[in-house]
């Protein structure tokens, strides 16, 4: 997973590099684009971020060990590039102190408040951009875990490595993220005329 860190360097021929790039990296380009787009919430920034990430992946290809999880390796590079290069200049509100957000949402108090009574029937009527807007409206750290888990199917352990956080934090952050998403969806359901008890 490591990039520029102490992972054993591989020695690939130019042909091998090409094979890895086209055979193992390019197949994930749609997932990677979606991740870039959901992080930056801007088509142009997403393009730049994706391009930077793939060029970086190529430049550091010898830190990638054949046969290991290329998708997780790529996602980690993209996430680090986003934090280092884009988060500062993005239109996100000034960087939220994550600890603060997390301890707030981890309190039992919030658990009691967030019990959205959302119904499956209401979801079935959300045929437009409701879910996409609800996801985009979440704080980027909560948005990220939902993308990695529910859209991309990463395991908790892989997510922990991609995000550099403990597995316990992955689990609790996911739980909070899903509660917040349901809260947003309940608002839409209410606007659509569904009664929430």
């Amino acid at each position: 997973m490591e990039l520029e860190e102490n992972s054993p360097k591989q020695n690939y021929t130019e042909a091998e590099k090409q094979t890895i790039f086209h055979g193992e990296f390019m197949p994930h380009i749609n997932s990677m684009y979606n991740f870039a787009y959901r992080l930056t919430l801007d088509a142009d920034d997403a393009k730049d971020l994706l391009q930077d990430t793939y060029l970086k992946a190529y430049r550091f290809i010898e830190s990638f060990q054949k046969g290991t999880n290329a998708k997780a390796w790529l996602f980690r590079i993209l996430k680090n590039s986003f934090i280092n290069d884009y988060r500062k200049k993005s239109k996100e509100p000034s960087k939220v102190d994550y600890q603060e957000v997390e301890s707030y949402y981890n309190s039992e108090e919030v658990d009691r408040q967030i019990t959205p009574d959302l119904r499956v029937e209401a979801l079935k009527d959300m045929i437009g951009d409701e879910i996409s807007n609800a996801l985009n409206a979440l704080d980027v750290d909560f948005r990220t875990v939902i993308i990695l888990c529910d859209l991309e199917g990463f395991k908790y352990e892989e997510m922990a490595k991609i995000l550099d956080i403990p597995i316990g934090t992955v689990r609790s952050r996911l739980h909070r993220a899903r509660n917040l998403l349901k809260e947003k969806l309940s608002e839409y359901a209410k606007q659509m005329g569904y009664k929430t008890a």
């Binding site: 380009i29 979801l123 879910i131």
Partner: peptide, 15 residues
């Protein structure tokens, strides 16, 4: 249902 909705509505291909 939420997971299904996310998968069908929140994945865009790269241009």
């Amino acid at each position: 249902a939420i997971r299904q909705l996310l998968k069908t509505k929140c994945c865009q291909d790269a241009p």
